[in-house]
């Protein structure tokens, strides 16, 4: 027996492709859709899936949550959490709407700033979100308080700001050039709303950023082992500010989209959206303990949430039952996923 036998035998290093973890989540989505299809024929006498209108509404409904979830996924990968997304949606919707009013409005928030280009309204909405995200990130990076607390504070304060901004009044009568961003377009006979396109675009960009850029690699590294990341020369504080800024910016974008679709800004917009976004990320395989998660999974998780809501409505399940069942399904999905991952880890 020679020295080479031991070292040499297992020394061929290659890189084989594995099945991505999203495949199983996709399976869950398809399974749920099929269940609704079958129940639909039994109880309603109609097809759940063969309905263009319904499919379009499903993803329109979730696209705002989806935009937030894409940002929250990145935060969760760093082993953090962002509870402020929903409140940022409300604040950003208010700010954007206030700059998108028409001069026909008798009580415009800024009477001198009516009928201006919608770009300013959009930029202001995005800017509010970005700023809130930077504040979140800086608090976490500089004071080392837990992300849960930092973003909880932002959640409460941003909601307060949204209400204070107009002393609780909604902002209505928005310019058509602004509400255009919430409209649908017929693409090959399929009604595709702009928020859906924005959602998919955001998802693709963030997927590329997480997978192929240094930004992405560092995001995973910080979540997987912050101490090792630090010793590897990664500036953890600086990077966390970036990640929370991205999440804030995307919440701001979601706020602008919400205001455009509703053609108004209301201080109560986006309440509890952060929880749906976190649920979407977690259903999609993102681990709350950090280091694990992918945008593709989050997109599928978001669609699962949409299919559940739409399916229950289609089956005429009462709203109370919907919520009860939805909670159970979220928890079950994660239990099953965790179980599956543990099995894989032992292998």
């Amino acid at each position: 027996m020679s020295t080479n036998e031991i070292a040499g035998s297992a020394n061929v290093i290659g890189s084989k492709k594995r099945l991505p973890p999203e495949v199983s989540i996709l399976g869950v989505l398809i399974g749920i859709a099929i269940v609704f299809e079958i129940l639909g024929w039994i109880f309603v006498g109609d097809s759940f899936l063969a309905n263009k209108q319904r499919l379009s509404i499903i993803i329109l409904q979730v696209s705002v949550i989806g935009i937030i979830a894409v940002g929250v996924t990145q935060v969760i990968i760093t082993a953090g959490v962002d509870l402020s997304s929903g409140s940022i949606v409300g604040l950003s919707a208010m700010v954007a709407a206030s700059l998108a009013q028409t001069s026909a409005n008798p009580r415009a928030v800024y009477p001198t700033l009516t009928d201006i280009s919608p770009i300013w309204a959009i930029l202001a909405g995005l800017g509010v979100g970005l700023l809130a995200g930077i504040v979140n990130g800086s608090l976490i990076a500089r004071t080392k308080i837990p992300p849960f607390i930092a973003t909880l504070g932002m959640m409460v304060s941003a909601r307060g700001l949204a209400k204070w901004y107009t002393l609780g009044q909604p902002v209505a009568l928005l310019d058509d050039s602004f509400t255009w961003f919430g409209k649908s377009f017929n693409i090959f006979g399929f009604p595709l709303p702009l928020p859906v396109i924005v959602f998919l675009l955001v998802a693709v960009i963030c997927h590329i950023a997480l997978t192929y850029t240094r930004y992405g690699k560092f995001t995973y590294a910080i979540g997987a082992n912050p101490q090792a990341a630090r010793v590897s020369g990664i500036n953890i504080g600086g990077h966390l500010i970036k990640v929370y800024a991205v999440a804030g910016l995307l919440s701001g974008l979601a706020g602008v989209m919400t205001a455009a679709r509703a053609a108004s800004g209301q201080p109560g917009m986006g309440v509890a959206y952060e929880l749906d976004a976190i649920a979407a990320a977690v259903i999609g395989g993102t681990s709350l303990s950090g280091g694990v998660g992918r945008i593709t999974g989050t997109v599928i998780g978001t669609i699962i949430l949409g299919v559940l809501t739409s399916g229950f409505t289609f089956l005429k399940v009462g709203a109370y039952y919907q919520e009860i069942i939805k909670g159970i399904i979220i928890v079950s999905a994660v239990i099953i996923d965790q179980h599956r991952q543990n099995k894989r880890k032992k292998a």
Binding site: S15, Y212, T213, R214, Y215, K217, F218, Y220, A221, G223, A224, N225, Q227, A228, A229, V231, S232, G233, I234, S287, G291, V292
Partner: peptide
């Protein structure tokens, strides 16, 4: 303080050098 136990060997191997090289316009 060493391993990123959740990540694969490739990611573990490359994490430190990304500070200084193999990156163009942010892309690895």
């Amino acid at each position: 303080t060493g391993c990123f136990l959740l990540l694969d060997i490739q990611e573990n191997t490359q994490m430190a050098v990304l500070q200084s090289g193999y990156v163009k316009n942010g892309f690895v």
